[in-house]
Design a protein around this nucleic acid. Structure first.
Ligand code: SF4
Ligand code: SF4
Lengths: 141, 141
DNA sequence: ATATTATGGATGCATGATGTCCACAATATT
DNA sequence: AATATTGTGGACATCATGCATCCATAATAT
């Protein structure tokens, strides 16, 4: 129940790019500025490209750029590009069919948590995470 | 970002016990009825005992029983007994101090998610997860 | 032609979740 | 007192996966 390092990397990279959406940034640049292992960043960028969140140019002076404006990039998109579909429990897919599924009493609760999380990620855009607009909520209990 | 199998086991065990709070149930019983590996269940029960959620009696006809009424057992308690403190990202504890912490723009979002999750787990009691009262929410998108 | 940059795939590594074993302590029953 | 039952504590085994590295190749600007 934690944000993976990989997702953290992805968001970091995107906010970095989002701060100057017009610029093109190379992996090397992103890697250095955001302290992300270069060769691992490559993997991450690949997923963002595949999901149409960024576009890539290969060759000298190549690099990455946002494909849409920060305002149109939902955090949910990023999450799903990295982690796949948001799913709090995996009792429904593939061969993971639990015997208790039909009468399960905790599933509704996790669904509730999941929906609440989806709503937040759906309502949060990259724009909301750029350097300018900061600090709405404080650390909770 | 998923509910661990261990937590699932814990909740299952507790709801099983909660359905007849007056009864005492042995590990063997719980293990068989809830399809949980016996020796692993032992580990799980230990954490629940330590956190004062259940009490244990050793010896013949021994077993476990809820220490409080189902209505007084919050899902949050269970979660924390198993997983430790709820923490969406671990950039603040120990040596995990991220260089970007002070100017981090995504932290507020995860905080928001975390608070929302805490609220739900705090408001949900074991009582809410017993066989009788079921099915409030359906599977989301 | 050359240098640069991204791509794709294979592979390695470390950590943590999950699961097992066993010797021992507690206690109810006889 | 002897015995059977049940939980306890610790060590250990196994497995999956997140994280990371390497390298050969393709694309392309100069
Ligand atoms: S018990 Fe409920 S939540 Fe857990 S795996 Fe089975 S169906 Fe899913
Ligand atoms: S970037 Fe922000 S969220 Fe990610 S580790 Fe650093 S402080 Fe935490």
């Amino acid at each position: 129940m934690q944000v993976s390092k990989t997702l953290d990397y992805a968001v970091r990279s995107l906010t970095y790019m989002g701060n100057d959406p017009v610029l093109k940034r190379s992996m090397k640049e992103i890697s250095e500025h955001q302290h992300i292992p270069l060769s691992y960043l490559a993997k991450i960028m690949r997923r963002l490209v595949k999901k149409g969140i960024v576009r890539s140019m290969v060759g000298p002076d190549g690099g990455y750029a946002l494909r849409r404006s920060p305002k149109e990039i939902k955090l949910r998109d990023v999450y799903e590009a990295i982690e796949g579909e948001i799913r709090m429990v995996d009792c429904m897919d593939r061969d993971n069919i639990c015997v208790f599924y039909d009468s399960c009493t905790q599933l509704p609760v996790w669904d509730k948590v999941q929906m609440s999380m989806i709503k937040i990620l759906e309502d949060t855009t990259l724009q909301d995470m750029l350097s300018k607009s900061r600090g709405k909520s404080a650390r909770p209990n």
